[in-house]
Write a protein that binds this DNA or RNA. Structure first.
Lengths: 196, 196
DNA sequence: GTCTATATTACGATAGAC
DNA sequence: GTCTATCGTAATATAGAC
């Protein structure tokens, strides 16, 4: 029992509290006062753990970005037919969005007012481009419909996947991540229309 | 030539400037100082035209909500087979999102920190429910696949459509609203997969 | 590690001159 | 209708005691 007691904050545990408040009120709408109330410690105590508000944001979006980029290094994202790699990435994106929900939520709402936010936006764009290339390859293989521009289709698919953060909640009696991932894959590739 | 001169602001023209800044920096990240710089007049002059920051937000989201709700009163949204009414509403949503882009963008980013924001969120939920009922009816008709829960499908389709505000820009050489609407309808109903 | 107290700056909004 | 000047508050962050 080294530090098995409880209660005292680390940057990690403080982050999980802060990210919740950021997502509830918006990053700019959250003051250090709000954070201190939510954490149950004083404002100045927060500064003992982190340099300030922006460091909390940087830690949070880093965690989200790391989770997303790791997908692209996985075997099923690198080998095989492009359309199958794409399906794998789509499914894994849903899994990362749900498992790292608060961190990805914050990432997707970043505006670009500070250097940290602009850095996050840039890394996000890199990730989007990597997935867009996958869709482009699948289109070149003839596995994906050619009557919708690849760039446009990528954006719309990302829109559908990323919208998870606006409504998905890991309730006990709610939907599981697997169920959501299945639905996203079915809709993205097959569409709403009843197949005969 | 009553007031054909130019330059002096009305609540309307000031709103169009303010909404741009709100969307660029986020509502909470925008100060009256930012607005005054963008409008080219002093902070106190803004208060001559509107009661404050929150009134600008209210006017903006009202305009967006009015545009969306009007869709539901149109003939093609009320008569005919549910799946066809749904397709019509999806297409018109894209048109309203593109034509009222800055106002809808602001609406979709509202958090809920003030009374105005909570009112906007509530009206948005009403609209979402109306469209969800349409999808439910289409599913009851057997025109929409039954292997994805209606509630989940609604959210994902809304996610795809609403994501427009994150990337659509009405550039002269860019995509037209019609092209985007076509792509959304094709993907929502038919999916990505190449049809044989 | 946490606190109270405070420095300093920025914010939303108003007063009153022109 | 626009301005300068300013009020009162709330923001980020620091100092220093315990």
């Amino acid at each position: 029992m080294t530090t098995a007691k409880r209660d005292t904050y680390t940057p990690e545990t403080l982050l999980s509290v802060a990210v919740q408040v950021f997502n509830d009120r918006g990053y700019d709408g959250t003051s250090m006062e709000h954070l201190s109330k939510a954490a149950g410690i004083s404002k100045s105590s927060i500064y003992h753990h982190v340099a300030g508000k922006e460091e909390l944001l940087r830690r949070a979006v880093s965690r989200a970005l790391d989770g997303l980029f790791e997908i692209l290094d996985e075997e099923h994202a690198c080998v095989g037919r492009a359309v199958e790699r794409l399906e794998y990435v789509v499914r894994r994106m849903v899994e990362v969005l749900t498992s790292e929900l608060p961190y990805v939520t914050l990432l997707l709402r970043v505006r670009g007012n500070t250097a940290t936010e602009r850095w996050a936006l840039e890394r996000r764009r890199d990730f989007d481009h990597r997935v867009a290339e996958l869709l482009k390859a699948a289109a070149a293989d003839g596995d994906v419909r050619g009557d919708v521009e690849v760039r446009l289709a990528t954006r719309l698919v990302f829109g559908m996947i990323n919208s998870l953060v606006e409504w998905y909640r890991p309730d006990a009696r709610g939907m599981g991540a697997r169920e959501v991932a299945d639905a996203v894959v079915v809709l993205v590739f097959g569409g709403l229309r009843q197949e005969s």
